[in-house]
Design a protein around this nucleic acid. Sequence first.
DNA 1: GCTGTGT
Length: 489
Amino acid sequence: MAESSTTSPPPATKSWADQADEETIPSPSSTAETPTLNVDGLTIDEDKKSSAKFLDDPDDSNIQAVTSGDTPYTSAATFEELSLSAELLKGLYVEMKFQKPSKIQAVSLPMILNPPNRDLIAQAHNGSGKTTCFVLGMLSRVDPTLQAPQALCICPTRELAIQNIEVLRKMGKYTGISSECAVPMDRRDSIPISKRSPIMAQIVIGTPGTIKNLMTYKKLGVTKLKILVFDEADQMLAEDGFKDDSLRIMKEIEKLNSNCQVLLFSATFNDVVKSFVTRIVEKKEHNKLFVKKEELSLDAVKQYKVCVPDELAKIEVIKSYIFEIGENVGQTIIFVRTRNSAKMLHKALVDLGYEVTSIQGALEHDERDKIVKEFKDGLTQVLISTDVLARGFDQQQVNLVINYDLPLKYAAEYTRGRELEPDYEVYLHRVGRAGRFGRKGAVFNLICDERDERLMSKIENHFGTHVTEVRERSVEDYKAALKEAGLLI
DNA sequence: GCTGTGT
């Protein structure tokens, strides 16, 4: 196909080429083949004049784009510019109630949808609408007349896979496109994989183990796949994460299908994962969208720390202060480091008469589903969770996050005789559960010894932010904190 | 530590 056919209609907004003329970031990788473009300020002019802000468009996002080849990409100011089907547009407007693309959507969707449909690594802030990017990508690249798996998305947890398929079904409601969620089933009603029928659904979203299994048993054909998505891609490709599974799935698909577009999406890519991820797609021409790490910490979420003498005092702080004031500010997630602390804290708070629920990976699958559903339906106000919900979990009513424990990095490279490091990525993802789509939010970090202090200050240094200390003397102090965060008047 | 299969 001629290269000219890849060009979009006359640009209604500034094109990538225009931007390149204005400001080109010098970079070692910036060659003729890989122009580096600073796309900050890609927002449409009308937008800047208008005081009305779109909730899904955090205004300070500074996305750095590196495009491969000379294909010009024009940021999409409207969904109409993306040549989507009428059925898909109806889903976006009627079901999703979207008005226009958020910044990451405006920039990434033309790259995803337009030939030559290059591979893409995309980083964007928590709650900025990444899911819409790849869900829309999958829905619009599928041939509705072909009844076979054409799009595959792999996620780190069953909760995320379920959430993503729900978004996909809502957005694709009028398209008639079929989908299947491939996650582990309950032991009771699961049939042996060898006896199940092959997957016919056009879009499949699932977790690594189940996907790998389906492929091993030839129940998931990949020859018709046009698009392969890794959600939370940094975790999916981390040594400590799902690297082996992900690479095996990728290689298996490559072997049978040379024409499959790969999309890697996450809010975080640490340097180690970033260089590895880049090497994966380096063979082919690909596009990259990255955000500076200083730009990542959500300004919308106010961060606090509370210093207490011991573990018992943490429960006291939650009980006497946070629950006293938290009720009026929406839902709360309390993150803990271990399954056992989830259980213990749950019991302690229930014994004190509070209505809380908890979730962790050791629970039965249907129990996990039930607890998430109750929380999403607003039937429960406070949810205790391990990092099973740290990433991607989207519940817009969550305004308060409590870090009962700070997240730790356990990778061998960090633990060998070295001081413990915080897991910066997990911290950012946890905080990102509050303040969805630019809403206000607050996080309270419960600190109880010198180790915690060091972890906390490392986190502050890493993100270049100040975490204000709250003196645990009175409810008034906490109220003031929430007022400052914009959660109380 | 946490997450991710099914036999």
